[in-house]
Design a protein around this nucleic acid. Structure first.
Length: 574
RNA sequence: CGGGGUGUGGCGCAGUCGGCUAGCGCGCAGCGUUUGGGACGCUGAGGUCGGAGGUUCAAGUCCUCUCACCCCGACCA
C-alpha cells in the first residue's frame, strides 16, 4: 500500500478529552473516527488490525471444535421476555418498533437466539456436544461509553456457545475455551490473567474473566501472588481483620451532637472505624433494604444483588430513608421493624460496636449481634481490599486495575429450560441441554493491545496483528536512485506476498520517521542516498533502537528471514 | 441518573467585562528554496461561531430554552 493513497491521515494533535493511550494513538494514526457517543468508524488501518485479530480468534475457535454461524442482530423482544433477561439488561437494551408496532431489540448478546436455533436442530444426545460461534455486532446502550474503543455502544464480539449433555461435558467445553483463549492472547501478545468473576446479567454459575493489567482498566482485580488466586473485586472474597472488643457489655446510649457520618462519630468517640456499624440503604426492586456493615468496610453491591436475587439495585434517596421512619445519621438496626435487614458477616462476628440509636444526635455503645438485633440475611457482602488476608492461603491480597478482554460463563440449563432446548438421552428421557458461553470483544482487544504495546512516539504492533509488517521508507525521494530502488524493492516485496506500507510521500525525514513510529509497523526499511553509498538499505524494528545495514541484493531475503524468525512467530509463546 | 466541563474552517485552540471586515497554529492547494527525527518563504481556498428564541442601534460575546459531546461517580458481559 502506498501511504500517499491510504485513506486516513496521521495527526499531530488530538482532542484533549482523549485521555487513554489507545484512544489518542488510534485518533492520531487516523485509524478511527467517532460518529456519536460510543460509536466509531474504522478506517483501513484499523480494519486490517481488526481482521487479523478476527482471523486469530476464528482459527482458535475452529481448532477448538467450534462451527461458525451468523445470527441476526434484529431480534423480537418476546424472545427476551421468555427468559426474563429483558429486565436483567434493562435500559442497556436498544429497542425499536417496526411498522406494525412490533417491538424489537438490537441484540446485546445472542444466548436467546442461539438457544432458539439449537432447540430446533438438536433432538438427541447424538447431536451433542456442540460448539457454535459467530463474530457479530452487538448493541448495548451503555450509560457511559469511555476510553475510545474500550467501552462502546456498538461493537463486535466473538461469542461462542457450548451445548453439552452433562456437567462433565460442560467442564470439558469450558476447559477447551480457556485453552483457546489463552492461545488467542498469546498470539496477540497480551499477558492475560484468568480471574474469577460474577456472571451478572448473563446469569449462570461459574464465570471467569481474562484481564490485562492496565491503569486505565475499569475493573479492579484482587489477587494473591502466593497462591495465584485472582478475582474481580466484585466477586473477590477476603478474610477481614478481626474487630474483637471483648465480651459483650450492656448496651448504652451516648450523645453524639451533630455527628452523623462514620468518620465524625468514630473521631468524636475516639474509636477506630472498625468498631462502628455502618448503615447503608438500598432499594431492591422497589423494596427498601437496610444493610449493616462494619464501619471500615464497603458494601459490594454485586454480592448484595446476588443475595437479594433482585434485578435492580440502587442506593435509596434521603427522602425514601426518612419516609421509612429512619433517622438519617443515627440509623440503627436495633429496634427496627418491618424493614428487611441484611448484615455483613463482619457485623455478626465482632462485639461491642457503636451503632445509631434511631434517635437524633444519639448513638449506642456495645451493640452485639444477635443479642440486640436480628438480620433477615447474614452473609458476606463486603468489598475485598488489598491488604486483607487471602482466604485460600493466608497470604496478603494485592490489587491492580485491569481491562476485561474476555469473559466465559458456565450457564447451566437456565436458558435451555426457558426456551425448550431439550435432548433425548440413551434411555429416551428428555433433559435440558447444558450451556456455556464465551465472549471476546474484538475492538476492545485491539485497544488493549495498544495500551500494552506503545511508547511516547506511538504504537508498537506485535507482528501477528500489525496492519502491515514492513514500513518502506525512502528518504530524499527526489533522488532518482532512491526512488528507483524504493519502487523496485516495493514491487519485489509485494510480489513475495509481504505486507508493505510504502511511504512514497515527498516528506522530510522527520515527518516520515515520526509517522513510522506513530503507526507502529514492526519493521522499518530505510533507503537513502547515505545507505545507497554503501549499496545498502537500513533495517530497524519498531520495538528496538539498533539498526542494521543490509546490502541491497540481500535485502529481500534478510527481510523475509527477520519477519519469520522464531521470536516473531505467530505460534504460541511461553 | 447526580456532579463538573466543552461546543468557533478538516484538526488543535484564542477571542466571551457586547463594538469595526472573526483570529492563530497545524493541515489543505500553487510556486520556489530545503530535508537522516515533525524545515522555510510567498500566494491562496476554506467558518451563517452547536440549535432555537429573546434583550440591544449593535450578539461568537448578555439572558432563556434546547441539543450534542467529554470527564468523575452511579451503572455496565
Amino acid at each position: 500500500m502506498r501511504l500517499s493513497k491510504l485513506f486516513g491521515k496521521t495527526q499531530r494533535e488530538v482532542p484533549a478529552e482523549a485521555d487513554t493511550a489507545s484512544h489518542r494513538l488510534m485518533l492520531r494514526a487516523g485509524m478511527i473516527r467517532q460518529l456519536t457517543a460510543g460509536v466509531y468508524s474504522y478506517l483501513p488501518l484499523a480494519l486490517r488490525v481488526f481482521r487479523k485479530i478476527e482471523d486469530i480468534i476464528r482459527d482458535e475457535m475452529n481448532k477448538a471444535g467450534g462451527q461458525e454461524v451468523s445470527l441476526p442482530v434484529l431480534q423480537p423482544i418476546e424472545l427476551w421476555q421468555k427468559t426474563g433477561r429483558d429486565a436483567a439488561f434493562g435500559k442497556g437494551l436498544f429497542t425499536l418498533s417496526d411498522r406494525r408496532e412490533r417491538r424489537l431489540v438490537l441484540g446485546p448478546t445472542h444466548e436467546e437466539v442461539i438457544t432458539e436455533l439449537v432447540s430446533h436442530n438438536v433432538q438427541s444426545y447424538r447431536d451433542l456436544p456442540l460448539m457454535l460461534y459467530q463474530i457479530q455486532t452487538k448493541f448495548r446502550d451503555e450509560p457511559r461509553p469511555r476510553g475510545g474503543l474500550v467501552r462502546v455502544r456498538e461493537f463486535t464480539m466473538k461469542d461462542l456457545y457450548s451445548f453439552d449433555t452433562d456437567e462433565e461435558g460442560l467442564s470439558s467445553s469450558y476447559q477447551k475455551m480457556l485453552t483457546a483463549y489463552g492461545n488467542i492472547y498469546n498470539r496477540c501478545r497480551l499477558p492475560a490473567m484468568l480471574v474469577e468473576a460474577d456472571s451478572g446479567a448473563i446469569g449462570g454459575k461459574d464465570s471467569h474473566e481474562f484481564m490485562v493489567i492496565s491503569d486505565m482498566g475499569e475493573d479492579e482485580i484482587i489477587y494473591c501472588d502466593n497462591c495465584n488466586c485472582a478475582a474481580n473485586a466484585e466477586k473477590a472474597k477476603s478474610i477481614k481483620s478481626k474487630a474483637e472488643n471483648g465480651v459483650p457489655l450492656p448496651i448504652e446510649e451516648v450523645a453524639t451532637p451533630g455527628y452523623c457520618t462514620i468518620e465524625e462519630v468514630s473521631d468524636f468517640l475516639n474509636i477506630p472505624r472498625s468498631c462502628t456499624l455502618k448503615a447503608v440503604f438500598y432499594i431492591a426492586d422497589g423494596e427498601l433494604v437496610f444493610v449493616v456493615i462494619r464501619g471500615d468496610i464497603e458494601v459490594n453491591e454485586v454480592k448484595l444483588k446476588n443475595i437479594l436475587h433482585c434485578t435492580e439495585l440502587r442506593l435509596a434517596t434521603e427522602d425514601e430513608v426518612i419516609k421509612a421512619g429512619i433517622v438519617a445519621g443515627s440509623a440503627s438496626p436495633v429496634g427496627l421493624k418491618d424493614i428487611k435487614v441484611v448484615a455483613d458477616d463482619s457485623v455478626t462476628s465482632g462485639t461491642n460496636f457503636v451503632a445509631g440509636a434511631n434517635k437524633a444526635d444519639t448513638h449506642l455503645r456495645n451493640v452485639n449481634y444477635p443479642r440486640d438485633f436480628k438480620a433477615d440475611i447474614s452473609a458476606d457482602i463486603s468489598l475485598a481490599r488489598a491488604g486483607e488476608t487471602c482466604p485460600g492461603c493466608g497470604g496478603k491480597l494485592l490489587s491492580e486495575q485491569g481491562i476485561e478482554i474476555g469473559h466465559v460463563f458456565k450457564l447451566g440449563t437456565f436458558l435451555s429450560e426457558k426456551l425448550d432446548a431439550f435432548f433425548i438421552d440413551t434411555e429416551g428421557n428428555s433433559h435440558p441441554i447444558i450451556m456455556g458461553c464465551y465472549g471476546i470483544g474484538t475492538g476492545r482487544l485491539m485497544a488493549a493491545i495498544i495500551e500494552l504495546h506503545h511508547d511516547d512516539k506511538g504504537i508498537i504492533w506485535p507482528l501477528s496483528v500489525a496492519p502491515y509488517t514492513i514500513y518502506l521508507c525512502p528518504l530524499f525521494m527526489e533522488t532518482e536512485e532512491v526512488k528507483d530502488k524504493a519502487e523496485s524493492l516495493y514491487a519485489e516485496l509485494e510480489t513475495q506476498g509481504l505486507q508493505v506500507l510504502y511511504d512514497d510521500r515527498d516528506e522530510s525525514t522527520g515527518v516520515k520517521f515520526n509517522d513510522a513510529d506513530l503507526l507502529g509497523i514492526p519493521l522499518r526499511v530505510t533507503i537513502s542516498p547515505r545507505s545507497l553509498e554503501k549499496d545498502s538499505i537500513e533495517l530497524k524494528w519498531r520495538s528496538e533502537k539498533k539498526t542494521e545495514l543490509v546490502p541491497l541484493e540481500e535485502a529481500v531475503e534478510r527481510i523475509r528471514e527477520l519477519i519469520s524468525s522464531p521470536q516473531n512467530s505467530t505460534e504460541l509463546i511461553g
